[in-house]
Amino acid sequence: MSVKMQLSLLMFGTIGSMLLVSVSCKNVYVVGDKLGWNIPSQKGFFDDWAKSKTFAVGDQLLFQYRPGLNTVVMVDKEDYDNCATMRIKRTFIVGNSPVTLEKPGDYYFFSSVGKHCENGLKLHITVTDQPKSSN
């Protein structure tokens, strides 16, 4: 199979997966919007990005980054505060990593590559319960 055909199949598979996932969750947030999951020019960039959003159970975060250049680790508050990897809950390394927010509470993420975390590539969000239906 040619490289072009393999890339086309990969692209269509990725788009199809994203469409299926977006149907099964409430909101999909591309972390960092246009910047994606990359080192920001300001350390507080991702805090500011999250402040304008309300995250609920069932929502999804999409971390867009190039494999090998970044990672996403989900950690506890202490590891987040110290950019440490002592208690990693989940690790994502393949790029375009979706994370479904499954329960209410605080979620902490950062890039474990080099000094990326210390340079502001970290995100803390608070997730609320799903809103009750009006039925």
Score class of each variant (00 low, 15 high):
Asp81Glu: 13
Ser112Tyr: 02
Gly32Ala: 05
Leu61Pro: 04
Asn27Arg: 08
Leu123Phe: 08
Lys115His: 11
Lys4Asp: 12
Leu7Ser: 10
Ala84Phe: 00
Ile125Leu: 02
Lys34Trp: 07
Arg90Trp: 08
Met11Trp: 12
Thr126Gly: 05
Ser24Val: 03
Met74Lys: 01
Phe92Ser: 09
Lys26Gln: 11
Val3Trp: 12
Asp106Gly: 10
Lys103Trp: 01
Thr91Trp: 01
Phe45Cys: 04
Ala84Leu: 07
Arg90Tyr: 07
Gln130Tyr: 07
Ala50Val: 00
Gly58Ala: 03
Asn96Leu: 14
His116Val: 09
Lys43Cys: 03
Arg66Phe: 15
Asp81Gln: 10
Val31Arg: 02
Phe55Asn: 07
Met11His: 13
Phe55Ala: 11
Asp79Met: 04
Gly120Phe: 06
Val94Gly: 09
Val3Asn: 15
Leu10Thr: 10
Phe109Tyr: 07
Val99Ala: 08
Gly95Asn: 09
Ser8Met: 14
Leu121Arg: 08
Lys77Cys: 07
Pro67Ser: 15
Ala84His: 00
Ser2Pro: 12
Gly13Gln: 06
Ile39His: 03
Lys26Pro: 01
Leu121Ile: 12
Ser24Thr: 12
Pro40Ala: 04
Val21Cys: 04
Met1Val: 11
Ser134Val: 14
Val30Met: 06
Asn96Ser: 11
Lys115Gly: 10
